[in-house]
Design a protein around this nucleic acid. Structure first.
Lengths: 210, 210
DNA sequence: AATTGTGAACCTCTTCACAGCT
DNA sequence: AGCTGTGAAGAGGTTCACAATT
């Protein structure tokens, strides 16, 4: 299959959410122009993104909101439940355990890991915290497919290495470091400092521009 | 000044962190090749990114880690303290209050806002939670320059509108919606569901490929 | 000998513009 | 008449490759 760009995939996610909202509002039909307007992009972009996967609209009419949402769910693989492990039960980790948005989209946190002996064997949100030592057993038992890495930067690579050994192929990394993985494994980064620093750059430039 | 791409700016952030780590390890000199290797990119990319802002290296030798880190700090505007407001003291918000990485980079949370009457006037992390109604007073008093939006999607646009009125020009948005702002205001999004859905897409494709 | 800084080539993503369908 | 789907053009970002420098 032709390689689809990351930007297209993340825009599909935003279309998905846009459609969910429209469906809630009982909107039955939507044009690429309207989807574009809601998300500050061009309608050509919306149509092109969708065209990589098929033709879901009706010329002259637009898209049926429910049908299109369903198609995007299929494309993104949201028709199944994903079993997720969370590694690092600190501030960020704890917040993610209760993050409703994840659950809504079918990402279910099934296992918690930490290396702090004080935390291991305690419970958070109804889930027991395991030692990362036992990772492979739990990964197998809970059929974990995705791991969220919320440990300090210096431990992130080791944690990922361990889980790659256990067969985990997808990681959402909150640690502010670049993680190396084999080519059949994917890492997506969520680095809040980078975005804040982009704001800092923007504000600094604007000041200079005056 | 010529427009620099977002990707270049976020790579500068990662170089900055790479250099910090090297300095901690008492490394004094580094080549574009080494920086590239650490971050899984090409050395030409590193040199090109830096070249937009000046020539900071010595041919044949590489870059002085401390000097280059200093230059990048200047470029990104990290030589000053940024006063930040956090709106929405829920799970995510609370985790961010204690997020050490922010403080380390000079982003100081100076004000908290929420609209829940039960939370208003209580304290978290030594900071009083204010009603968003009083935003402009507090923004002025605390010289707020950046706001982190950690409220539910349906309230995000209204909260941003309010703060734009108060003169805030930079937002880090955790709500899974596209926010509209005037052209002199910047919004950066931190949307964890989008990244998880990209993992879902990747895993789904791979399965099909078998 | 090693490594930077950079124009040119290349590649990828976005937008245009219009034929084709409803 | 209105809106999609898409090939072609355009814009933007990345990599190459090498002259310049230490």
């Amino acid at each position: 299959m032709k390689k689809i760009s990351d930007s297209t995939i993340s825009r599909l996610s935003t279309y998905y959410r846009t459609l969910s909202r429209l469906i809630e509002q009982n909107v039955e039909t939507v044009s690429s122009d309207e989807i574009a307007e809601i998300n500050n992009i061009t309608s050509a972009q919306v149509r092109k993104d969708l065209s990589f996967f098929g033709s879901f609209g009706k010329r002259g009419l637009g898209y049926n909101t429910k049908d299109l949402r369903e198609e995007i769910a299929k494309i993104l693989g949201l028709k199944k439940q994903w079993n997720v492990a969370l590694v690092g039960v600190g501030n960020i980790g704890r917040a993610l355990i209760d993050y409703a948005e994840f659950k809504k989209q079918g990402f279910i946190i099934k296992a918690l890991f930490d290396n702090d002996p004080k935390k291991v064997n305690t419970e958070v949100g109804g889930l027991k915290i395991h030692d990362i030592e036992n990772a492979c057993n739990i990964v197998k038992k809970e059929k974990i497919e995705i791991a969220i890495i919320a440990v300090p930067a210096k431990h992130a690579q080791a944690v990922v290495d361990t889980l790659v050994q256990c067969g985990v192929k997808a990681f959402l990394n909150f640690a502010p470091v670049t993680i190396k993985v084999p080519s059949d494994v994917i890492v997506k980064n969520e680095n809040m400092s980078i975005e804040l620093e982009a704001l800092s750059y923007f504000l600094t430039q604007n000041k200079k521009g005056d």
